[in-house]
Write a protein that binds this DNA or RNA. Structure first.
Length: 210
DNA sequence: CACCAGGCAAGTA
DNA sequence: TACTTGCATGGT
């Protein structure tokens, strides 16, 4: 990422320090969170996850047996709860059918092949699939989200309607193919976006990097 | 009150 | 392919 993009990993890391993503205790919790956080603040997702834990529902087996509307009730704070209940169940179905709900077995899958299969699940798009691959399974896949896109656009490095793969390719081509690096870099971009790169303010705040 | 948040799918032309 | 709309809570 030398010279392509001024918001380098090094600058971000030196300024913000390690972000220690994903904020979850188990890979399965990461996967559930990845679906719940679609277009939703993490704060709201935390409430939903906490509810699931409180009712001892945070496992593939328990969620599999739960009815959609019961699940919707538990994840209500995360918003879009009816859609997300279906999406979670679709994902759980996939986990059972493809891997017998064994995350260890899932981890053995070839990443790009698994990515295609995840995206084929209704409710899982590119970002959610990549978040699962990177943050739950530790695969070197770069995650592109709204902040990543916005920061690149503001620096004139991408058009605002650029395809996902196009944005992703910019990072992949310019970085070592390393899961730890991808993990921290994306988390740092989100951190920067949250604090300094606002949607309604094209000027942003004064960027602390440079 | 308005706006936003770690998207995605389905419908339309 | 390229728009548009529905989904929904909670924080600022």
């Amino acid at each position: 990422m030398i010279k392509f993009f001024p918001v380098t990993y090094k600058k971000l890391y030196n300024y913000f320090g390690p972000q220690r993503w994903w904020p979850a205790k188990t890979p399965f919790e990461v996967m559930v969170g990845a679906i719940l956080t679609q277009n939703t603040s993490w704060q709201n997702v935390e409430k939903a996850i906490k509810n699931l834990k409180k009712h001892k529902l945070l496992s593939p087996g328990k969620l599999n047996k739960l009815k959609n509307n019961s699940l919707a009730l538990r994840i209500k704070p995360a918003g879009y709860y009816n859609v997300k209940a279906k999406r979670l169940k679709n994902f759980i179905d996939f986990l059972f059918k493809e891997f017998g709900a064994d995350i260890g077995k899932m981890r053995l899958a070839e990443p790009l092949d698994l990515r295609k299969k995840l995206i084929a699940v209704n409710g899982i798009g590119q970002e959610t699939a990549d978040s699962i691959l990177l943050y739950a399974l530790n695969k070197p896949v770069f995650v592109v989200d709204a902040y990543t896109r916005r920061i690149l656009c503001r620096h004139g490095k991408a058009k605002k309607d650029a395809a996902y793969e196009e944005i992703q390719g910019l990072f992949v081509k310019n970085l070592r193919n390393n899961a730890k690096l991808f993990n921290e870099y994306h988390a740092l971009l989100v951190r920067l976006g949250k604090e300094f790169c606002f949607k309604n303010d094209p000027q942003c705040k004064e960027c602390p990097l440079k």
